[in-house]
Simulated scan of single mutants.
Amino acid sequence: MSAPSPHPRPEKGPRAAEAIFDATLRLLAERGYAGLTIEAVAQEAGVNKTTIYRWWPSKAALLRAALLRARVLDIDVPDTGSLRGDLVALAEQVTALVTGVRTRAVVRALASGTGLADDELAALARDFFADRFAREQPVFARAAARGELPPGADPKLLLDLIAGAVWVRAVLRNEPVPPGFAATVVDAVLPGTG
């Protein structure tokens, strides 16, 4: 059972927002950030570029909205009743994002912005990951309330270790993520829970 997102999808934007977001992410994956243009997004989404500019004044603003609001990149915050179960479910969602047919190239394009001279894309990547971390906080609040997290535990470190293992395997090594990998990683990070 999934808890409602602490960041409900804002309704701001044109009716064609999802088509615009999909086009933005598809073009990011195909052309990279430097090749992404408002004009190309408008053509792909079947809208006027003035529609896009009315809602998003720049390429960076449009891409930020697409990263934070596109359904294809959404996560469901799990509530399995245990920290281990929630972390396994989150790791499985991360795996789906970094290996999925519609999302793999987007994730790789986004990751390519970190560490490059293009500070704008790096800032967008930071915003994306900060948003995801904020959405995942209920997992740790519930775990703390159940006594599964010791005082002073670092939720960001736990997520970095778990998601990092998925990213290294799928994105950096470009290797398949085997079935059960999410549970194996979580059990390595949370010893004694497997």
Rank of each mutant, 00 (worst) to 15 (best):
L116S: 14
D119G: 11
V94K: 06
G85I: 08
K49I: 14
E44W: 02
G115P: 06
G46P: 11
L27M: 13
L116R: 10
A40L: 15
A61Q: 12
A117H: 09
R142M: 14
R71E: 15
R84H: 14
S58C: 11
L68H: 05
L87E: 09
V94L: 11
E92P: 01
T99E: 09
F128K: 05
T99W: 08
T37F: 06
R54W: 03
G152R: 00
P151I: 06
V107N: 05
L124C: 02
A117F: 07
L28I: 02
R69T: 05
A122V: 05
R132H: 12
S112N: 06
R108C: 08
K49M: 13
E18I: 01
D160P: 05
P138M: 07
A19R: 13
F133M: 12
D118N: 12
I20M: 15
A134C: 08
A16T: 15
L25F: 04
L121G: 02
T99P: 06
I20D: 15
I52D: 08
E148H: 01
P78C: 10
A70L: 10
A61Y: 14
A61R: 14
R135T: 06
R135I: 01
R71P: 04
L27F: 12
L121M: 00
A19H: 13
A143W: 01
T95C: 12
L73T: 09
T50E: 13
L27G: 07
L27D: 10
L157C: 11
L161H: 10
L157T: 12
A123F: 04
D76C: 05
A144V: 04
G100Q: 00
G152W: 05
A117Q: 09
P78E: 07
F140H: 01
V72M: 14
R102S: 07
E30R: 12
W56C: 11
L124E: 00
A117L: 13
G100S: 05
R102Q: 14
A45Y: 06
D131N: 04
L83T: 00
F128P: 09
A65P: 08
D22T: 07
T24G: 10
G85W: 03
L158W: 06
G113T: 02
P151D: 14
A141M: 13
A60N: 12
N48W: 01
R104G: 00
L158A: 00
V98C: 05
V88Y: 02
A60T: 09
L158T: 01
G85D: 02
E148I: 03
T37P: 01
T114V: 14
A61H: 08
A34M: 02
D74S: 13
R135N: 07
A111C: 10
L83F: 08
V72A: 14
E18L: 06
K49R: 15
V41H: 03
E92Y: 00
F140T: 04
L63C: 12
R31E: 13
P78K: 03
R135E: 15
R102D: 15
A123R: 09
D86S: 02
L73P: 02
L121I: 06
L87I: 01
V101P: 13
D118L: 03
G113V: 00
A111N: 15
D74W: 08
S58H: 04
Q43R: 15
V41Q: 11
I20N: 09
S58I: 08
